[in-house]
Nucleic acid binder design. Sequence first.
DNA 1: CAGCAAATTTACGTGAACGTAAACACAGTT
DNA 2: AACTGTGTTTACGTTCACGTAAATTTGCTG
Lengths: 136, 136
Amino acid sequence: MPRSKSARPRVYSINELSTLCDVTPRTLRHYEDMGLLNPERQGAKRLYHERDRVRLQLILRGRRLGFGLKDIQDMLDLYDADPTEVTQLKDVIRRGDAKLLELQTQVEALQAIITEIKELRSVMKNRLDHITKGGE
Amino acid sequence: MPRSKSARPRVYSINELSTLCDVTPRTLRHYEDMGLLNPERQGAKRLYHERDRVRLQLILRGRRLGFGLKDIQDMLDLYDADPTEVTQLKDVIRRGDAKLLELQTQVEALQAIITEIKELRSVMKNRLDHITKGGE
DNA sequence: CAGCAAATTTACGTGAACGTAAACACAGTT
DNA sequence: AACTGTGTTTACGTTCACGTAAATTTGCTG
């Protein structure tokens, strides 16, 4: 029973990865310019590994949540830090905690909106029922 | 014991409201240009009522969550729809439900990030403890 | 080696969400 | 009447996150 692992490529050209993740090549280059991605190079050409793909997914998720690229950068930096220094470790934890507070605030705000829309929905539904049943 | 209600102004000039809500007058005019606000006019001057202030808060909350103004427009429209028309009522409910799905997806994505950062935090904390207690 | 697809860099363009400056209007002092 | 404060419109400027076009370069393939 051969072929020990992976049906998937392991490496991607810029076009492959952009197709796979539904972004344009331009976007991938832009993220690289901004320092969010750092693909290997073979000559001049970019070679993306699984690691890069995962990072990209993280970036895209952040983007869907309305974060700017700098902000996403901050979060990715948390993962990248390879801190052997105690002060750096503490710093990563501190920055992580700060992000957590922001994020939890965001969740609360979102849930407030959700609650409001649900309430609105119920108001509208009552009106609707009133009109179509009792009304003229 | 008089003064039946409200210690607060009830109406605001553009500068008052912008100060109160921590935005610039330009922003208020911009939101008006985009159709998000519709303050009364006294001559040429804008007069904001409580209703406008509440709308502004909704807008700002949406903005903090990374929504575009058009998207915020959509959500505000839910509140504004004429509630005597059955078709409009149904439409509001339908669009509200669609928004709810989006929002709940967003909450889940946010919570995924929160979980990841928490896990990362625990990894970092372990390293830190290991170094400061057992390590060299 | 000619030709072609896939990639590259360079650089200007774009839409969103305002910032910022200029020029004008009006209302109430002084 | 002139000054000051608060507001107005008009319009160009800016940042972000890419889009888009142009001009190469690279790596095969016939």
